[in-house]
Amino acid sequence: MIGIVVATLLLGASVVVAGVRMYLGPDDANRAVASDLLFFSVVGLVALLGVWMRGPYVFDVVLGSTVVGFLASVALALAVTRGRR
């Protein structure tokens, strides 16, 4: 149980740092990376909540969210680079 609490605190700190980076980021690329970090940190918090509550359907939501988050990361990368490779 202590591991869940420590992981929750670390992911919470990651959410705060990513939020600050999104707000203060000097360019769009830094904001895109910070938004990815923020999204996946929140997904990690939801997964930890599922472990703590022993919810059987939370992990299905986490899996779907990670697929959507990956596609959003690819779309943000294309938007930031304006389609250049």
Rank of each mutant, 00 (worst) to 15 (best):
A77T: 13
G3P: 02
P56M: 05
A75P: 01
L45M: 13
A77I: 09
R21A: 14
V74G: 10
P26Q: 08
V68F: 15
F39Q: 04
A34S: 13
V61D: 00
S41I: 05
L49G: 14
M1L: 00
P26K: 08
T81D: 10
A34F: 09
A72Q: 07
L10T: 01
F59M: 15
A47S: 14
S65D: 06
G64K: 06
A13N: 08
L11C: 01
L38P: 01
V42E: 11
G83I: 07
A13F: 13
L9K: 03
F39V: 07
V46M: 14
A77Y: 14
F40S: 02
A72I: 11
F70C: 12
L76C: 02
R31M: 12
V68I: 15
G50T: 12
V74P: 07
A13D: 05
V46G: 06
G83F: 09
F70T: 13
P26R: 07
A7P: 00
R21Q: 13
P56N: 07
F70P: 05
L24D: 10
V51A: 14
L63T: 12
G55C: 05
S14T: 12
I2H: 03
V46A: 14
M1E: 01
R31F: 11
R21V: 12
T66N: 01
R21P: 02
L45H: 06
L45F: 07
A7G: 00
V80G: 08
L24W: 08
G69R: 06
S73L: 15
R85N: 03
F40H: 04
G12Y: 04
T66A: 03
V15A: 11
V20I: 15
F40A: 01
G44M: 03
V5R: 01
N30I: 14
A18N: 04
D28M: 09
L49N: 07
V33C: 13
A32L: 07
W52G: 03
V16K: 05
S73P: 11
S73D: 14
V42S: 14
V58W: 06
V46C: 13
V5P: 00
L48I: 06
G55Q: 10
A34V: 08
V5D: 09
A72Y: 13
R85V: 04
G55T: 04
A29V: 09
V5F: 07
V61A: 04
V68H: 11
A72L: 15
A77K: 05
L48P: 05
G69F: 11
V6A: 01
S35I: 03
Y23V: 12
V74K: 08
V80D: 11
R31C: 08
L63G: 10
G69Q: 11
L38E: 03
L9S: 09
V67E: 12
N30S: 14
A34M: 11
A29M: 12
V20W: 15
V17C: 04
P26S: 09
G25N: 02
V62A: 05
R54T: 02
V46S: 06
A34L: 11
V42L: 15
F59H: 10
